[in-house]
Amino acid sequence: MGIYNPEQTKSMSYAKSIESHEDCGFEGIQNKEASLYKTARVAPISLKYLGFCMKNGLYTVKLDFAEITYKEEDYHKSRGNRLFDVLIQGTKVLADFNIKEVAGGQNQNVSKTFQAEVKGNNLEIHLYWAGKGSKRGAFELYCPLVSAIFSRAW
């Protein structure tokens, strides 16, 4: 969700990717797992994932993140940070989340695991840019970003 800068609209995509696994810097994780972090979903304001027709009950939700859109030169030129909130089933589980800070750098992965209760057979995961950080430069340097989402019943 969100409106891109009209000048950038034609070149924008909700998916971002890195060029090569070999160059991406995800050391210490197996190749199959590293492929999770080669792409990410982004949006200028909000990403919302809905799981429909799920069995009611308790679930483990795992969110995988890696800061793959910043180039090192962009990071040094920008004073801004990517900060966003994460809500699961309407409850804020991460506030002002900064992937690069939590993961320890660019192209470093971090996973966050949460418990969620599914009622009404639906699961909602919402990543939302709350206007903090900066929106200088290209949108992909401040908007929500996620590489993978997994859920499983207890």
Score class of each variant (00 low, 15 high):
81 N>V: 02
105 G>Q: 00
23 D>K: 15
11 S>T: 10
19 E>I: 15
23 D>T: 10
3 I>G: 04
106 Q>A: 08
42 V>N: 00
67 E>C: 02
23 D>E: 15
44 P>Y: 06
133 G>M: 08
135 K>C: 12
125 I>P: 04
16 K>R: 13
24 C>E: 13
15 A>H: 07
93 V>A: 06
3 I>M: 04
97 F>H: 02
54 M>Y: 07
113 T>A: 02
59 Y>W: 02
44 P>A: 05
46 S>A: 07
55 K>D: 15
11 S>F: 11
101 E>W: 03
85 D>R: 04
122 N>A: 08
7 E>M: 11
42 V>Y: 00
31 N>T: 09
74 D>F: 11
113 T>R: 02
133 G>E: 09
14 Y>N: 15
130 A>V: 13
61 V>Q: 03
134 S>T: 14
133 G>R: 10
32 K>P: 04
13 S>Y: 07
36 L>E: 08
1 M>E: 13
95 A>W: 05
39 T>R: 06
92 K>D: 07
52 F>N: 14
137 G>E: 04
77 K>L: 15
44 P>D: 15
154 W>R: 10
27 E>N: 08
131 G>N: 10
149 I>W: 00
36 L>P: 00
21 H>Q: 13
135 K>A: 13
1 M>T: 12
150 F>M: 08
96 D>M: 09
142 Y>Q: 05
9 T>L: 14
41 R>Y: 15
82 R>W: 07
21 H>V: 08
133 G>H: 13
128 Y>N: 14
18 I>A: 11
135 K>P: 03
122 N>K: 10
97 F>K: 05
114 F>I: 14
120 G>D: 09
50 L>A: 08
60 T>L: 00
8 Q>V: 04
65 F>L: 02
60 T>N: 01
150 F>Y: 12
48 K>T: 15
122 N>E: 15
10 K>N: 08
31 N>S: 11
13 S>G: 12
128 Y>I: 03
103 A>T: 01
9 T>Y: 10
88 I>P: 04
147 S>L: 13
24 C>Y: 09
153 A>V: 11
132 K>F: 13
139 F>Q: 06
37 Y>T: 05
36 L>M: 10
72 E>P: 03
